[in-house]
Design a protein around this nucleic acid. Sequence first.
DNA 1: TTAGGGTTAG
Length: 604
Amino acid sequence: MRNPKSLLSSCIRDPKTLSTLHALLTVSGTLSSPSSIADSLSRLIFSYARLPDLPSALLLFDSSPHKPISAWSAIIVSHSRHPHHLLRLYHRMISGPTTPDSPIFSVALKACAASSDLDLGRSIWARAVDSGYKGDAFVGSSAVKMFAELGAVEDARRVFEGMRRRDLVSWTSMVSGLARAGFAVNAVEIFRRMRSDGYEGDGVVMLALLRACAAIGDLRLGRSVHGRLLRRSAGGGTEIETSVVDMYVKNGEARLAVRVFEAMRGRRSAVTWGALIAGLAQNGLAADALGRLVEMQRIHGLCPDSTALVGALSACSQTGSLESGKSVHGFMTRRLGLGLELEPISATALVDMYGKCGSPGSAEAVFHRTGTKDPILWNVMISAYGAHGLGREALSLFLEMRDTGVAPDGVTFSSLLSALSHAGMVEEGLAWFERMVGEFGVHQDERHRACVVDLLARSGRVEEAKRLVESMEGELGTVVWAALLAGCLNSKGSETGLAVARRVFEARPDDVGIYALVSNAFAKAGRWELVAEARKAVKDSGRRKVPGYSAVEVDGAVHGFVMEDKSHPQFGMVKQVLGRLYQQMRRLDCAPEEEFEVLDFGKF
DNA sequence: TTAGGGTTAG
């Protein structure tokens, strides 16, 4: 047998490459063992990749006239962190005679997931099946994850069910894939099957499961997962415990989340803080969320990541804390390098915050400065205009969105219709309500219907609104009825309101809030016996209406106002101003009628 | 020297 050095010489012509190769092989002791050339070549490629020196790995690979499967495998796997390069190499390979092996199929499928290329993913999987890798646990797990992550849940399921043997990782891919794709119930089902197949499950499955519990609000299962983690000596580690915090806040259990969070002292990362801050904001605990943002920086010296900042912005939006919102914005800007722009999620949260805190101009400025505009960013900007009665601006931004080639979705039309409604642009509203289906293929759901009913009713066309509701097909939800009732209450006359209220009341909706409208409509018609009946129905159901709430910030302090709440120190003055406004409304003939006044303003 | 892993906006 020829010695390894001469064998290598015949494969690699570049002397410089060869000398490096030789040196490396000598150092690693490979030359003294009887390993094959192919083996040495792939080892050398991996050695370069580990440095990491991918250009040299590529040079070596390219300069070798013989490219055995192990060399292809080595060069492709070495590019795992560069999905686009990896896929280019994959294409190069399949245009030649060599068939990919299991590692190549695995990493190529993973790369498709990373570059969101479902079509390529499908074709790679098809080739893997043709090449006999259908039952391969590695290839199968990668395919399951890729399909689930790219929304092709049925394909993921088919791959998974077709696997001959499943190990812990393939089970986990399926549980996690379903949980991520929003099929939380199915994720839990697969987990149960996994248990009955004899797998206990490790931390990674627990993460997927916690995600599923968070999504479907399965607090019982969530608590049992938490319990299992506590019974294990370690408790799970930072990642898992962070997921526990997240699972509790998403289930509305902010107190439990805080308890877990406090118990994590010393093991909390910026991500943990971010999960808590965002969660507190989601639970309406805006002040707590903002307090935690300060605490993490001042007391714990941690730098908040964008999740924590976005959570804090959402808290500012809820309470109208413009000053806090501005300081978060300042923080974000300072942290960006020159010429860098905000990521879409942060930009969206900022636009939303400015829109809800009364600064549509600042919202606009952030919007225009953001280069990559996704649909959600357009939507929040349209809403920001709408919230300030800027119907024309909302409409022209919507048209710009369409002309830019960004497809409007259901939320876009809710924002648009609501903006047009609040600006009194009735005809435009009706027209776009029609066009959203025909021209854009967006399904009209309850929110859109409610918007249009509101649009008509608000402008005094209550009868038309009622006819529209009557013409609507399918089950009508509370939102539509509420919009119609509110319209009736705001317009002259009480006949239509009474008729609608009767129908709604007979249907006994679950939503407690609508009974207030029903009761007001009865009162407006002077039917006090029905008022008493409606109130009794609410009382008997044992539920309470969540009070309406509004807030305004003056000199950095937020003042909240709740129905029937007289606790504000300047309550007397507020009432006086409201009284003056009411007088003005009367002069302009847009004040509510007397009976209504008694019921509504009287409580203030 | 191949596969599964935490938080975020309307």
